[in-house]
Design a protein around this nucleic acid. Structure first.
Lengths: 125, 125
DNA sequence: TGTTCAGTTGAATAAGCTGTGAAATGAGAG
DNA sequence: CTCTCATTTCACAGCTTATTCAACTGAACA
């Protein structure tokens, strides 16, 4: 307990700070977002909000893989991985296909990949 | 309990699916992300993973506001809003400044705004 | 049909969160 | 210095979530 209230960031209240920042990424923020969208978006964020799950997603972003591969790579149990994937699948963030005895998972779409990428980028700065 | 294992999405295993999707957003995903980055990114996602908090962030994305305004607008108690902001601030997603008796909050940076925007966009599709 | 291999699901326990009222801060006004 | 207003912190009850073991499903194949 020592951080969290460090620098107060005075952000010069009179500089007008170009509030209408034209960087884009305003589209969804300009007007009050629909409650349903917020719910859904929060659900997506929550699903990505666990280190183990996010790691899994980052791994899948690199290439599809089956449960046993993922379990072996991460060192976690099959059941554990399966449960994580279950949750991610429930949020429709991953898709799966069966190939013989194995079931391969991959990210649901490229948009998801971007979201993860953005998060990871923002993380180390 | 009825959804979650609906369509199996066969994703045509032989179409090769242009795996090297050139949409960008690969940067952070190409190689195994650093554990620290994953932790941090997950923490950010987790912070945004609560409807009430995300709503708050979406609100702040529109314009800065002080606690009482936010409380009045959302209908929640002061204490509740304050706690939400505390968590968001602990993750450095919002900044605050004091002006007389009030304390104004706003998003920490434009990158955060983008993240939220992306999430909301992905939400309704 | 029966066996095996790959994954899934259920249940239980443990750990972590969130909202909330009451008490505490802290800057300005008198 | 004291009072007050805006906001924060504390502490806790109540709810959600993650992991794990064991039991189960369901292809493949002999």
């Amino acid at each position: 307990m020592h951080d969290e209230r460090s620098k107060e960031e005075t952000w010069v209240a009179d500089e007008e700070e170009r509030v209408n920042c034209d960087h884009r990424a305003r589209s969804a923020l300009e007007s009050s977002a629909a409650p349903a969208s917020v719910e859904r978006a929060a659900a997506i964020f929550r699903a990505l909000g666990d280190p183990a799950r996010l790691m899994l997603m980052a791994r899948l972003a690199r290439a599809e893989a089956c449960v046993s591969e993922l379990a072996a790579e991460s060192g976690d149990g099959l059941s554990t991985i399966s449960q994580r994937l279950r949750l991610l699948r429930a949020e429709r963030l991953v898709l799966r296909r069966r190939d013989g005895k194995h079931i391969y998972y991959r990210l649901a779409d490229q948009h998801v990949a971007e979201l993860i990428s953005n998060g990871l980028e923002h993380a180390d700065e």
